[in-house]
């Protein structure tokens, strides 16, 4: 990528310097904003995780090193006991729940989102209305949609059980959010319902950047639409799709409010964010909870690096 091959070489260098200088000015406001709202709070949280701070004594915490993560001592009997988040079964249960949830929800959302986007990209009557309709789930505040679904999923007077009973799919009313077998399923239904529009919209924006004549040409050549999708459309929208997936993944790994409202205390849906909040605020173990959120952060970071590496997502665009 070299936009300036028409200019003389000395002018080229000068131009490049000028562009970089401009780029710096363009970046400063954003960096300043992020330092303010992200860097400082982030630093505080990581710092707290190495202390014994509690919420009733926010400024008097003592440095205790890695004790919140892992510590051990040997009892007089010679037995060694381990303490800390890294040996806390509740934490690992939460890790497993989070990973399971994120993987299933994002995969299904990507597929469904792509299908919806393809539908919306086609020309048909009433497309505008359909486009507005699919955004409704996204537009309803999470707090509300979680409550709405918990109402619809209610075992006695919920409409979901009523529909399924009338259709003869189930014979007994299911307690969706209470039963350990269906709690995760209920969360997934609501999350997929709610965030597929987000995926669809990003995919659609990508699709609309695909030149129309590509389709026309392939139509004339008589190539099967499915083949067109995998050979032409998908590669063209891949960058947009990859970004959409990353951001959905980040959201899914941090999922908090939906579960907090829908199934707050079910051990099968307790995620890392939920358990970290529980410790920080409910259980008066602020530093311990901070350690868990720091671990969550590390975990997500590792995940993203892995994703970028395996998915060959082009970060800088330098390889173009």
């Amino acid at each position: 990528m070299n936009p300036s091959h028409a200019v003389s070489s000395s002018g080229k260098a000068e131009l490049q310097t000028q562009r970089i200088r401009a780029a710096m000015w363009f970046l400063i406001p954003m960096i300043a904003a992020l330092v303010l709202v992200a860097a400082y709070p982030l630093f505080r949280s990581i710092y707290f995780s190495f202390t014994d701070t509690s919420l009733s004594n926010l400024y008097g915490g003592q440095w205790i090193g890695f004790d919140n993560y892992l510590s051990w001592r040997t009892l007089p009997s010679g037995k060694t006991i381990f303490r800390g988040t890294l040996v806390d079964p509740a934490w690992w249960n939460a890790v497993w729940n989070t990973v399971r949830f994120a993987f299933v929800s994002v995969t299904l959302e990507a597929i469904l989102g792509m299908i919806v986007a393809l539908v919306l990209n086609a020309e048909f009557k009433g497309r505008g209305l359909v486009r507005a309709a699919i955004l409704i789930p996204w537009a309803i505040p999470t707090i509300v949609s979680a409550k709405m679904w918990s109402w619809m999923l209610n075992d006695q007077f919920g409409i979901i059980n009523d529909v399924l009973m009338n259709l003869g799919i189930i014979s007994q009313k299911i307690a969706w959010t209470a039963s350990v077998d269906t709690a995760m399923f209920a969360v997934l239904i609501v999350d997929i319902w709610k965030t597929t529009p987000f995926m669809a919209l990003l995919c659609l924006a990508g699709l609309q950047m695909v030149p129309k004549d590509v389709y026309e040409a392939s139509k004339i050549d008589g190539i099967h639409p499915v083949k067109v999708f995998f050979k032409i459309t998908l590669p063209l929208v891949k960058p947009a799709l990859m970004v959409a997936i990353i951001f959905r993944m980040l959201d899914a790994l941090r999922i908090f409010d939906l579960i907090y409202v829908l199934t707050p205390n079910s051990s099968t849906t307790k995620t890392m964010s939920i358990i970290s909040r529980e410790n920080m605020i409910e259980f008066d173990k602020f530093a311990y909870g901070s350690a868990q959120s720091t671990l969550l952060f590390t975990f997500i970071a590792l995940f993203v690096i892995l994703y970028i590496w395996l998915g060959k997502v082009d970060l800088s665009g330098d390889n173009k």
Partner: peptide, 21 residues
């Protein structure tokens, strides 16, 4: 008690009760 009682709070219980169930 209905199996769903394991997801009931005060309001859900009252819902069943107040509809005469």
């Amino acid at each position: 008690s209905p199996p769903g009682v394991l997801s009931y709070g005060e309001e859900e219980a009252r819902g069943v009760w107040q509809t005469g169930n």
